[in-house]
Structure formats: structure tokens, C-alpha cells
Simulated scan of single mutants.
Amino acid sequence: MTYAISGECCSDASCVAVCPMNCIHPSPGEPGFGTTDGLYVDPRACIDCGACADICPVDAAKPADRSAPVDVQLNASYYRERPPLDGLDLDTWEPPRFDPWSDGPRRVAVVGAGPAGMYATRELLQRSTAEITLFDRLPVVGGLARYGVAPDHPLTKQIVETFERIAAHPRVHWRPGTSVTVAELEGRYDAVVHASGASESRRLGLPGELTADEIVAWYNGRPGARRPELRGPRAIVVGNGNVALDLARLLPTLPGTGITEVLVLGRRGPEAAAYTASAYREVEGRNEIAFRYGVTPAGWDEHGLTTADGELISAGTLVSAIGFTGRPIEGLPFDETLGIVPNVGGAVIGRPGHFVAGWIKRSARGGIGVNKACAQETVRTLLTVGVPQPA
């Protein structure tokens, strides 16, 4: 189901910045911006990711099936006489600026082919003449867009097709299945953008717990992922983010697990829940899913979960979905508390020529669309700061 923007639109354009498919118009600088009744979603390009709804300050962006028919019609009619938009827009983007790089193309390495790395690559293609070498330890592009999005969200996964087209651009040299170190990159490239993500699951520290990453990687078919041991009839998911709700929705549907009900536990109150409205709508009213808040897990064994209050909650599976953290990158500074590489606007502190984008830059929060604005900031910083010049 695609999204539509209603007449309550305030045109602050927050949704334009986060839309991963560039399908909300007129955007700032385009004809009609500020003079039309609002902004409109192109139903031909929308991938149903919900980024516009999550950031809209006036709740004007909604799934089409929850929007007024007239709003759905107005959104579609805005694009009726327009050709389908190209998610890359490489040929129609503003001319590149070469203030610090006026002597021609340079070599840039992008490490990580997930959403942040691919958006950074697209920005570099659009705003410079740089030759880009793209590395990823996996054999395909997409990262969490391919292996982290729930399998029952096929529209959202369509963004991977755009990423594949970016990787196939003549100025991109794609190096799949390749791990590289900072030391190996030094001296070979004028700038390096690290977009390695934050794939390390935070844990409760209870023996026998499974992590969200283990299960999500398995049901999405990530190379090297193994089927975890899932037992029913009840599963407990600790966490109140979107990943926790995805697990709660999907665990009862997985064959051979015996799971028929899921209890979602929040260690704090409902006011601290981190899931988005669109994610909650997908589990709202499901009889097999229950929520409890203010519960502190203290122990786990074959009988179930013991809380800090001494209560035993019977269950066969315990899954921690309490977030992710980045891993240190050897050769770069690292903030253990935040799980990020310290940076200013994407420029790594103390390491000229090195930049970061995505979760390793800002910590593990925000969906696919947020990486677009994040990568744009990093590339703007890269082009403004430039690259170290020989003495």
C-alpha cells in the first residue's frame, strides 16, 4: 500500500529529505513549491516505507487505505501528466561544484553498500566527477534494506533495485565480498567514506537469549545466517522499537517453531516506546500479541523469564530486540558509549580524509530514509572540507 499526503500538509518538506525514492514533490527549488496546496506522493514510485509518515509534523502523510479518497486521487493526479521519476536523477541534478576539487576527478572509497553507503555513493555521483570504489563484505548491495526489512514488506525492499543501479554506474567500481582495513585504504584514495553500520546487537546478558539480528538475518536469508532454535508456544520479545514489533508480527507465522503467541516487554513505560506509528498499526488488534511495560528481565531458563520482581513468565523463546551498536573500526577513533565514530558533520575527528555516514556516524536509529539526509550531509562536508593536500 502506497502513501498519500492530505490537505493538512504544511509543506515544511521534512518528508522530501527522508524519502528514499525521491517521490515527494514539488520539493524546495522546484516549480510549484510553496504555491501548490501541499506536497504529493508519486504512487508509481512509493515503496511503502512510511518514512514520510514518521517525520510529518502534522500527521498529513498516511497509508492510502487510511487516507480520504480525494487525497489519494489528488496525489495520483499530480503525476498523471509527468513521466515516471528516476530514483537516481543523475542526469537532471544540478551541475557539480568543484571548489576544493577543481583539478578534476578524484578517487573515493565507500566502505559499506547498505543504505548509507549507497546514498553517499549517489551523492558523490551527483555532485562530483569522482571515481568511486564501493566495498562490502557481502556479495550484494543493500545491507539492512535487503537483509533487515521484514520479508512481508516487499515494496520497501524495492529500494535495493535502485542501489543495484547505482553500483552499476560507470564511475562506480563495485567490489563485492571484500573486507578492507583503514591501513589498506590509506594512500590509495583521496577520501574514504565509512558506512559500516551498527550490526552488533545489544544484549540483556542472559544465557540462552537470542538476538533480533540472529532471527532477522535467518528469515531474510543473509549469507552465513543459521536457523536459530525457536520454541513455543510463547515467545518473549524484549524491546519496544520497530524491530521488536516486526518480530512480534512474524514469529507466529514462521513454520516449525510452535510459537502461537508473543509477549512484547518494555523495560520502561509506554511513553518511552521507540516504535513508529506505522509499525504499531501493523500489530494493533492482533490477538496473539500482548504488551507489558515496566518489566526488568533478571533470569532465563527452560521454565521461562524471571523478572526483577520475582515473577516467572513461562515461555520457550527469549529474544532481545533492544537495539544495535557499532563496532570499532581499527585506525579510527571510537566512542564506546554511543557506539559511533566521533565526527563533525560526517568528518572523522582527528583523521583528515576519513568520513562516516549512517548508523556508525549517528548511532543506530532511524529507518532507510533517514540515511539519505545523513549521507547528503556527509558528502556536503566532504566536498566543503576537501581532501588533504600534499605538503
Rank of each mutant, 00 (worst) to 15 (best):
E8Q: 12
D12C: 15
S14L: 13
C15P: 11
C19E: 02
P20N: 05
C23P: 02
I24N: 10
P26C: 12
P26S: 10
T35Q: 14
Y40C: 05
P43W: 07
C46N: 03
G50F: 06
A51H: 08
A53D: 09
D54E: 14
C56R: 00
C56Y: 00
A60V: 00
A61I: 04
P63Q: 06
P63N: 05
A64Q: 12
D65P: 06
D65F: 02
A68D: 14
D71E: 12
L74F: 10
N75L: 07
N75Y: 02
N75K: 11
R80L: 15
G87P: 14
G87R: 14
L88R: 13
P95D: 11
F98E: 15
D99W: 06
P100A: 15
P105T: 09
V108M: 04
T121D: 05
R122T: 13
L125M: 06
Q126K: 13
E131W: 02
E131I: 13
D136E: 06
R137Q: 14
R137P: 01
V140C: 06
L144R: 09
V149A: 07
K157L: 03
K157H: 05
Q158H: 14
Q158T: 14
I159A: 04
E161W: 05
E164S: 10
I166M: 01
I166S: 03
I166N: 02
A167S: 07
A167K: 08
A168M: 00
H169R: 01
P170H: 06
R171N: 14
R175S: 05
R175T: 06
R175F: 05
V180Y: 03
T181L: 08
V182N: 00
A183S: 14
A183T: 14
E186A: 15
R188T: 12
R188G: 15
R188E: 13
A191Y: 05
A191R: 02
A195P: 03
A195K: 05
A195V: 10
S196I: 15
A198C: 12
S199R: 12
R202K: 14
G205P: 08
E209K: 03
L210A: 01
E214G: 00
V216K: 03
G221Q: 12
P223D: 06
R226E: 15
R226G: 12
L230D: 05
R231Y: 03
P233L: 09
R234L: 07
V238S: 04
A244H: 01
A244C: 02
L245I: 04
A248E: 09
L251S: 03
L251H: 08
P252E: 08
T253R: 15
L254T: 03
T257M: 10
L263F: 08
G266H: 10
P270D: 11
A273M: 13
A273K: 10
A274E: 13
A274N: 11
S278D: 14
E284K: 13
N287Q: 15
I289H: 10
F291M: 08
G294D: 04
G294I: 00
V295Q: 11
G299M: 07
H303I: 05
T307F: 04
A308I: 04
V319T: 11
I322S: 04
F324A: 10
T325H: 04
T325K: 11
G331Y: 07
L332K: 06
L332G: 00
P342D: 08
V344A: 15
G345Q: 09
G346Y: 00
A347G: 11
I349R: 13
I349F: 08
F355N: 04
V356G: 01
W359V: 02
W359R: 02
K361R: 13
V370C: 04
N371D: 09
T378H: 04
T378Y: 02
A391W: 09
